[in-house]
């Protein structure tokens, strides 16, 4: 699904990612953990194609394509989804309107018919249930006046509508209380499938109690310094990031 080789990103002369390697297979859920400033969010943004993160070396291949050569909207239509750490407000634009544009842009890209209003609404209602959201939510402006929890839920709702091949969840757990976290995690779990891969970018182990990853990677100094199964997250929780950062011998291949 996704193969990242020797990825290097340099911003203003500072190396943020330094030869990062990562491979995510179909249907797998990988967690990327690491201390603040380790490059977690940079990785998420580079995959999605955000400006301001110049790639100075390495490659990213997605379903056999050179992902880095594609514009952000092309990546999205190919099935790359980013759940934003800070979802953006768009005043005056109803949630449902953005969704419809987004769903149809992807459908068109795949050579499918645009959904008509009835079919679209049917799909929307089904997915709303998944995230336990009320229908009035559709008609509010995108993220405007949403609580932190509502914003994050909205991201996962959008993911459910767009049915991506690869979803990158950037600190989706931050700012959520335990009830909201459960709803979001259930929403993500319901979308796990053999042909959908998920990358969870998170600072805390807490999220991984609810979304159990196949692999856990620890990012430090712009590289993956340790990989393992879900137990690695628990070890980290117990010992703190200092443990992996201070011991270079723990570096292992993903």
């Amino acid at each position: 699904m996704l193969k990242i080789s020797k990825l290097t990103v340099t911003v203003d002369g500072k190396t943020i990612l330094n030869g990062l390697d990562l491979e995510v297979g179909p249907g797998e859920v990988h967690a990327i953990m690491g201390p603040n400033g380790s490059g977690k969010s940079t990785l998420a943004n580079v995959i999605a194609g955000r400006e301001g993160y110049p790639v100075t070396g390495g490659s990213v291949s997605f379903l056999g394509q050179d992902l880095l050569s594609l514009a952000p909207e092309k990546r999205a239509r190919e099935g790359v989804f980013l759940a934003f750490q800070y979802p953006v407000e768009i005043p005056g634009v109803a949630n449902v309107y953005l969704l419809k544009e987004a769903v149809n842009a992807t459908r068109q890209h795949r050579g499918e018919e645009k959904l008509d209003a009835m079919d679209f609404l049917k799909l929307v209602r089904e997915k709303l249930k998944l995230l336990q959201m009320k229908e009035e939510f559709l008609y509010r402006s995108v993220n405007e006046g949403f609580s932190g929890g509502e914003k994050k839920r909205n991201e996962i709702f959008q993911m459910a509508m767009l049915e991506p091949r690869l979803a990158v969840l950037d600190e989706t757990d931050s700012g959520l209380d335990i009830d909201a976290l459960k709803i979001v995690a259930d929403g993500v779990n319901a979308q796990r499938s053999p042909d959908r891969s998920v990358i969870l970018v998170t600072h805390y182990q807490r999220l991984l109690d609810y979304i159990v990853p196949d692999r856990v990677h620890v990012l430090a100094g712009g590289r993956i310094v340790r990989s393992g199964d879900k137990r690695l997250a628990l070890e980290l929780e117990a010992q703190g990031y200092g443990w992996v950062e201070s011991d270079p011998s723990t570096v292992s291949a993903a």
């Binding site: 999605a48 909207e73 999205a76 979802p87 407000e89 768009i90 842009a105 767009l162």
Partner: peptide
């Protein structure tokens, strides 16, 4: 820029 990127990440030109 962040509004534009948000929309483009959802597939809009």
């Amino acid at each position: 820029e962040d509004q534009l990127f948000y929309c483009r990440q959802r597939g809009l030109s």
